[in-house]
Amino acid sequence: MVTILLILAIGLVVGGVGAMMGIGGGILLIPILTAFLGVPIKTAIGTSIVCVIATSCAAGAVYVGRGMTHNRLAMILEVATTAGALAGGVTAVLISPRLLALLFACILIYVAFIMHRLPKEERPPVRTGALDTSYIDPRTGGRVTYGIRRLGMGMGASFLAGNVSGLLGIGGGIIKVPIMNLMMGVPLRAAIATSNFMIGITAATSGIIYYMSGFVSPKLAIPTALGVLAGAQIGTRVGGRIRSQRLRQIFQLLLLAFATMMLVQAWMK
């Protein structure tokens, strides 16, 4: 019972942070489960997949309701990401996971650095004529209209991100948000909402595979899912009230934290 409550609480926190930042939280959950609760890695990944899906659905219901998710962009990028993840299985033979984790950590640090160098206020989003969309900013109540830039480059980067996430067994939200925000000109809030949608689709595919292989343990997955479902509701609401600038700072911290985890992982392997 104590363990169940503990896992429920962990799910609450991971779901909250994940929903707020557009990431699945697998990279938070997997180390906690394996290191502190002694869960085998495959079962930990199975649990984390359920966590990612729960975050995506619960946060998605709020973000889609607010009109903040760019459904069409998500679908286009999802083609590249899933194809990348599929190709990841082929590339896995060629690159050592250790080198990959190292490279990935460098990319994350680089992205954090770029975000740090950006001007304090987000550049006002503009229409570009490609995939123009708009949403109501929950904090200011104003309408934000924006279009997509560099779609081709974004798709290329999404392919690589899918590739890396397929190889390292992570959802990849941490890399999807910067691609959309920094490369494609999507405002941070919309990038978070859209990333939230995409990670759910990718995770659902592996979710079914893991379920059929018996790596989804109800003992762990049920409390996590219930915690996440509640946590994500809180996360989306808190995230809506935070200023974009502060949101960006939190994201930078997450990037650095993940980079450190990746480096530790590369070191230990």
């Binding site: 995506s56 759910g200 659902a204 979710g207 379920y211 109800p218």
Partner: peptide, 22 residues
């Protein structure tokens, strides 16, 4: 146990249903 397993499966299926709905 069966209710819990069904719940998990429904959860996993939701994102895919979202794509099919679109």
């Amino acid at each position: 146990e069966s209710f819990l397993d069904l719940g998990l499966l429904l959860l996993i299926a939701t994102p895919i249903l979202r794509v099919i709905g679109s």
